[in-house]
Design a protein around this nucleic acid. Structure first.
Length: 433
DNA sequence: TCTGGGGTCCTAGGACCC
DNA sequence: TCTGGGGTCCTAGGACCC
């Protein structure tokens, strides 16, 4: 009897080294060799060049501290347009060697090279060396690459040697790498599971791989059983090919300092988050039917509010109407809040239905049309050129003080805000400015 | 270890039905 | 009405990733 023998796959993982900072350097070669950090707009480091790392900059660091630590660090705002451009170029280079690409994230991708030796007329090793060479030279930054038999082990490969590494892990050599990898470093195993496994005496990835499948099934849930299988060289996780699929949800959260117990201010924060979420929604041509909002207290307690809409919308007013009515039910007086957030779920491409029983719909349609103009204005003159009266305090409120910027511009906003407050009152809704 | 923001997937438990 | 068993659907929350 013949037993089916599945041949090993050749799975590639590509990882851009400190991608955002590298993109900035590729875009502006004068920055090469300098300590570069991105994330200026958020006040925290989102990416840093190896030169910055060498000077002691770490992820948790505040930008203000960095300035003090090493004044010659160049701090830049994130420029996602540029990063996604480089990201696309990365995918395209890999695509020269195989059509099977998973665009995993802005700075990473997987590729299935299985069966491509003949079409490309070269060995796997030659393929990945060429891919790396083309990525490095054409994009002007370095990439770390792993080639192995599945996604989990390819990830171990790309992490193995950084920056600018190229690690090939054949199935028969897997144990050599797993032995030197702590369980917590495996893709998909986080702090919870890793400390749980540690308590069971499992320290390295190899310890885990060597466990009996029945034991694994008894002790951990499905995702970890799958990881266990991959660590043993099996192919479990398929690559998700093709264009990036649509969002299942869109969320916006914002923490403000200092925390506040001012109801109007907290509501305005929420209002702004809802506005921002809707901007993203419209940018992707989506409509929302289900909404969850929450307030985070200082003790990280949540107070959530969830509801469904009778029809899918893309404008914040429809959401805010409901949130405003129920806000008092989740807002506790004399409580300090540190953040608000909104999650838009149940997203569709569907257009607004044309049924209009109470005349409400035609109004909704009109406001939706107005928002086409609002989006145009924002695109031309910058985000929040037009915003809701209810968001006013969030854009100009106490949390904003001390921020640099043209004071005349602030005064302009303030003046208009005062007018709005008189005219509409906060948290009334309206398109303003 | 935590910060901070934006996502996805899985599981356990409850409600309900047969 | 009780007993027992089973299936489905929904939801809240956990865990993880970048």
């Amino acid at each position: 009897m013949l037993t089916h023998h599945s041949f090993p796959r050749a799975i590639l993982h590509v990882d851009g080294d400190c991608f955002f900072a590298s993109c900035e350097i590729a875009k502006n070669p004068k920055l090469r060799g300098k300590a570069v950090v991105t994330g200026k707009e958020r006040g925290i480091v989102s990416s840093m060049s190896y030169e910055a790392k060498a000077k002691g900059v770490t992820r948790a660091m505040k930008l203000s501290d960095i300035k003090r630590l090493c004044p010659d660090v160049i701090i830049l705002p994130s420029d996602y347009e540029t990063y996604s451009l480089y990201s696309k170029r990365m995918y395209e280079i890999v695509r020269r060697y195989t059509p099977d690409i998973e665009e995993y994230s802005i700075d990473e991708c997987f590729a299935d090279l299985t069966g491509m030796r003949r079409p490309n007329n070269m060995s796997y090793e030659e393929m990945v060396k060429r891919i790396k060479y083309e990525l490095d030279t054409e994009l002007g930054m370095t990439f770390s690459i792993g080639l192995s038999v599945n996604k989990v082990t390819a990830k171990i490969g790309s992490k193995w040697c950084k920056p600018s590494g190229l690690t090939i892990i054949p199935g028969y050599d897997l144990h050599l790498y797993l032995d030197k990898t702590p369980v917590g470093k495996i893709w998909g195993i986080g702090p919870q599971t890793s400390s749980y496994l540690n308590k069971l005496g499992i320290i390295t990835a190899l310890d885990f791989a060597h466990k009996d499948p029945f034991w694994v099934k008894e002790k951990v849930s499905k995702p970890f059983q799958e990881i266990h299988h991959e660590l043993n060289g099996h192919f479990v996780y398929p690559l998700v090919l093709g264009e990036k699929h649509d969002y299942a949800s869109i969320s916006k959260t914002k923490t403000f300092t200092p925390p506040s117990s001012d109801m109007i201010f907290v509501f305005s924060q929420l209002s702004k988050n809802i506005e921002n979420a809707c901007i993203k929604l419209r940018r992707h041509g989506l409509f929302v039917k289900e909404i969850a909002v929450f307030l985070k207290t200082q003790e990280f307690r949540y107070r959530a509010l969830e509801f469904k809409l009778t029809q899918a919308v893309s404008i914040p007013q429809e959401i805010l109407k409901i949130v405003r009515d129920r806000f008092v039910s989740i807002f506790k007086p004399n409580t300090l809040y540190r953040a608000t957030g909104v999650v838009l779920m149940n997203l569709t491409h569907g257009n607004i239905e044309t049924i209009d029983i109470f005349g409400h719909h035609s109004l909704l349609e009109k406001v939706t049309k107005i928002y086409e103009a609002v989006d145009h204005l924002d695109a031309r003159y910058g985000k929040h050129t037009v915003f809701l009266g209810s968001s006013f305090k969030a854009l100009n409120g106490p949390a904003h003080r001390g921020k640099r910027g043209d004071s005349s511009e602030r005064n302009k906003n303030l003046f208009k805000g005062e007018t709005i407050r008189k005219r509409l009152g906060i948290p009334y809704l309206g398109v303003v400015r």
